[in-house]
Amino acid sequence: MRFLMQAAINMAVFLACALLFPTGFYLDNMLVAAVAAIILALLNGLIKPVLLILSLPLLVISLGSFSLIINAAMLEMTALFVPGFGFASFWWSFVVALILTLANLVFMDQKNIHIRRQ
């Protein structure tokens, strides 16, 4: 279920970014957005943990902000696999990675926090 939610959020962000940044982010149609969202969710599940472990010293030094660079690299890798999905430069993929990170932070229920009032 988490995989489907992740893919749906990715697809929504891709569609929104295609409307917001037409010169820096290329997206042919909704089907391409769906395929790219599924591929990105797969890459995030399979390859991203390895990259996070390999870049652990950089993550510690940068206090975790290097993970945005890893997210941008994952988007660039997705663009290699999906025709009709791409970026004008690495910085455009960084902007989309930042928006994806914020969207996942808001919409993904990673931990249930229950506050009891006493």
Results as ranks from 00 to 15, higher is better:
I61Q: 09
L51H: 03
L54E: 00
D28N: 12
K48F: 08
L59C: 12
L31C: 01
V35N: 00
I38H: 03
M77I: 10
F90V: 10
L43C: 04
S65I: 15
F66V: 12
L51D: 01
N29H: 14
K48W: 01
V60C: 10
V35L: 10
S55T: 15
A72N: 09
I61P: 07
A33I: 09
V82H: 02
P83N: 05
V60H: 02
V82K: 02
D28S: 13
N29T: 11
F90L: 14
A88G: 10
F66D: 09
I70E: 04
P49F: 05
F87H: 05
I47M: 07
L63C: 14
F94N: 03
A41S: 15
L52S: 03
D28W: 10
M74S: 04
V50D: 00
A34F: 15
W92Q: 12
E76L: 14
L58E: 04
I38C: 13
L51M: 13
W91C: 00
I53W: 11
A37L: 10
L54H: 01
N71H: 11
M74H: 03
I69E: 05
L59S: 12
A72V: 13
A37K: 09
I70F: 12
I47D: 00
K48N: 04
A41P: 03
V32G: 04
L58H: 06
P57S: 05
P49M: 01
N29I: 10
V35G: 00
L68C: 04
I69W: 15
F90Y: 15
M74K: 04
W91F: 14
V60Y: 08
A88W: 03
N44Y: 03
F87V: 09
F94W: 15
S93D: 06
G84L: 12
I70P: 07
A72F: 12
P57N: 04
D28I: 08
L68M: 12
L56G: 01
I69M: 14
L63V: 14
S55G: 05
L58N: 05
A79Q: 06
V32L: 07
L43Q: 04
S89L: 07
V82R: 02
L80V: 07
F66G: 10
M74D: 05
F94R: 04
S67L: 07
V95F: 11
A37N: 11
A36S: 13
L27F: 13
A41H: 04
I39H: 00
S55F: 15
V35M: 09
K48E: 02
E76M: 15
V35W: 11
G45F: 09
L42Q: 01
M30T: 12
M30C: 09
I47R: 01
L42K: 00
P57K: 07
I53R: 09
G45S: 10
L56C: 07
N29P: 10
I38L: 15
V35E: 04
A34T: 06
L59G: 14
I39A: 10
F85R: 11
L59D: 03
I39P: 02
F66N: 11
A88R: 14
N29K: 11
